[in-house]
Design a protein around this nucleic acid. Structure first.
Lengths: 159, 159
DNA sequence: GCATAGAGTACCGCTCAGGTCCTGTTTTCG
DNA sequence: CGAAAACAGGACCTGAGCGGTACTCTATGC
């Protein structure tokens, strides 16, 4: 059903929560604030740390903090850290799909994949905190049916 | 890892293969041409038929055919038929997520979901057969970072 | 009337995400 | 110097859901 994993969902929530603090936050504290199970949060934080999205200090009085401001972290970045790179099918990026014989679509999924990836990279965690920037349709307004009608480089939204 | 199901992948392959025929095609024939297991193809065809994407004739000399031309069928349509509607998280469209207490992101995922959905609706099966419509970046060019700068209703791509 | 082929339903096994636990290491504080 | 706090890094278990299979029924054509 083309959904991202719950862990990725949690990761975004956790990151946003972390963004509300200026000092170090411990894993248990984050778990309590987000309402998520503590071991899961701890596991998540380790993954995000390993990916460079967080910084940590060990020992007593230790904790986690963001390595970047929320606005500089895209949804795609968080998802990639937790679930691995975005790949809509196994065929993407030269991956091996089972349909080697009659599969005429090899490589074609890259188009879909790139489109999805670009969409996710266009949304930052800061955008999530304030919801839709200019009304509900604000963000997705830039995405419209246009393979036939759109000229290359016709994007006029981003400055 | 944010991938669509294998069945959805298979469905697209099968639909495209169907698009290469003008007459009725049987499930076994499609299975052979695509290299996919026969029972799986048969199951898939029933689902696609139930969703109105295909037409069928029963009995001897029966088979399946497309109900619409390839260019009028979006990837999103096929995925929705096989996997259900696109929902990046359970929170989308008023769905119930577990994080009811401290979840400050309720409803915010709709933005992401709409963006993804729009992206998938912008790609037709015909686009898959000929690869990228206007170059690799052509499709995703419509998706750009613009929460601050974009005015509501600023979409100019779709005619 | 028989062969062909779709229609419908039910079932099963396997994979993997999600969750838990344990142990080690580092740092601070008394 | 020792104890406590908190991160680090595994291993392991479980359950849901995807993917695959089988069986039966119905409709059509020769």
């Amino acid at each position: 059903m083309f959904k991202l994993s719950r862990l990725a969902d949690y990761a975004v929530v956790t990151m946003v929560e972390l963004g509300r603090h200026v000092e170090l936050v411990t894993a248990p504290a984050l778990a309590q604030e987000t309402g998520l199970p503590e071991p899961t949060v701890a596991k998540l934080l380790k993954v995000l740390l390993a990916d460079g999205l967080l910084q940590s200090r060990r020992g007593a009085r230790g904790g986690y903090e963001l390595a970047l401001p929320l606005k500089d972290i895209s949804i795609a970045r968080v998802i990639a850290a937790v679930d691995g790179p975005v790949m809509v099918t196994a065929c993407v990026d030269g991956g091996d799909c089972g349909c080697t014989s009659g599969c005429s679509l090899k490589g074609k999924w890259d188009v879909v994949n790139d489109a999805i990836r670009a969409t996710l990279e266009a949304i930052s965690l800061a955008d999530m905190t304030r919801g839709a920037p200019d009304g509900a349709g604000g963000l997705s307004a830039g995405v419209r049916r246009g393979p036939e009608s759109a000229a290359p480089g016709a994007a006029v939204l981003g400055g």
